[in-house]
């Protein structure tokens, strides 16, 4: 029983698979089999086009207020009517979309960055870092989110933050409320990854921490990050709408879907002028549902727990 060292194992059979499949291509393949996820993606793309390109096709983009045309019902010249200042509702809806989407995505990016970095550090190093990060997260998580946002927003109003800047403050507020749950999720993922044999192997190979974290941990956490990040955009858009509805988030003249609904804040407006609140309401609803469909689809196709591998 002797085998020569020069004997080479046949590797023909893997050639085909290797050419076809990088890991992300496999994910894409699975993703494109999910109709609901694709529907979500397409709807989101349409919402984006509507918000960011749409206004350029509107004759009212720069028109602003118009006292002659207040409270007009939908017509050929104003497809969704006008508001109490005579502004075209459709145009405002598109401009508000820019703000709401920007706040949603901005808040998500911030929360993911904070939560991701802190979660990885806490999970990887454990000890004191872990204690500090997780205690802060616990405290933030025991405080109910919306009341906390209300308080912060009230302070912001008290300080008379200018309307153009409130948008950014709202982003920061939302990410402050959202990072703890993300950090916790990432931390637990890192903790379970740390026990995996390939992480023990990085130890045996004498790799330094930077490589272990950036090359080995991070790529294994990214799928989970992408999925939770996507899903959290929906929540951020909703929270922003609620805040703005109560006049505590993005305030007029900057339009957001939430403060647009608020323009129908009297019973007369509500019953007699549904064009004021139905369009932004539908916009929020459709966007949030689409985000969730996309997020669920991504989760199923990425399989963040690496099941079956």
């Amino acid at each position: 029983m002797s085998y020569s060292n020069n004997e080479v194992i046949q590797t023909d059979h893997i050639t085909k698979t290797v050419q076809r499949s990088s890991l992300w291509k496999e994910v894409m393949k699975r993703f494109f089999k999910r109709k609901m996820a694709i529907a979500g993606l397409i709807i989101l793309l349409l919402v984006f086009l509507f918000s960011f390109i749409g206004p350029f096709f509107s004759p009212y983009m720069t028109a602003g207020t118009n006292p002659q045309e207040i409270h007009q019902a939908p017509s050929l010249s104003h497809w969704l009517g006008t508001d109490h200042l005579g502004r075209d509702v459709l145009t405002r809806l598109m401009l508000a979309g820019r703000i709401s989407l920007t706040v949603g995505i901005g808040a998500m990016l911030l929360a993911v960055t904070i939560g991701g970095i802190l979660g990885i550090l806490a999970g990887y190093y454990g000890g004191l870092i872990d204690q500090i990060v997780m205690r802060i997260a616990d405290i933030l998580m025991t405080l109910p989110g919306l009341p906390l946002l209300f308080i912060m927003a009230a302070i912001m109003s008290e300080w008379q933050v200018p309307a153009e800047q409130r948008l950014y403050i709202v982003m920061i507020m939302l990410s402050l409320v959202n990072w703890p749950s993300l950090a916790r999720l990432i931390r637990s993922q890192v903790l379970s990854l740390r026990e995996r044999e390939f992480m023990v192997a990085t130890e045996v190979l004498g790799l330094r921490d930077k490589r272990k974290v950036l090359n080995h941990l991070l790529p294994n956490v990214v799928p989970l990050l992408i999925v939770t990040a996507t899903l959290s955009v929906g929540g951020a858009i909703l929270s922003e709408s609620v805040l703005s509805f109560f006049g505590l988030g993005v305030v007029p003249p900057t339009a957001s879907w939430g403060n647009m609904i608020n323009t129908a804040n009297t019973l007369i407006d509500f019953t007699n002028r549904p064009w004021l609140w139905i369009p932004p309401g539908v916009a929020i609803f459709v966007t949030v549902i689409a985000v969730n469909l996309l997020g669920d689809g991504l989760r199923d196709s990425i399989d963040p727990n690496m099941k079956g591998r």
Binding site: G206, N215, N220
Partner: peptide
Amino acid sequence: RRIRGNKLSMIFQEPMTSLNPVM
């Protein structure tokens, strides 16, 4: 750490799980 993987190296029982699945 500088010695491990360098002067002193090791192989494990489970080749399937000792490599990072996403690298």
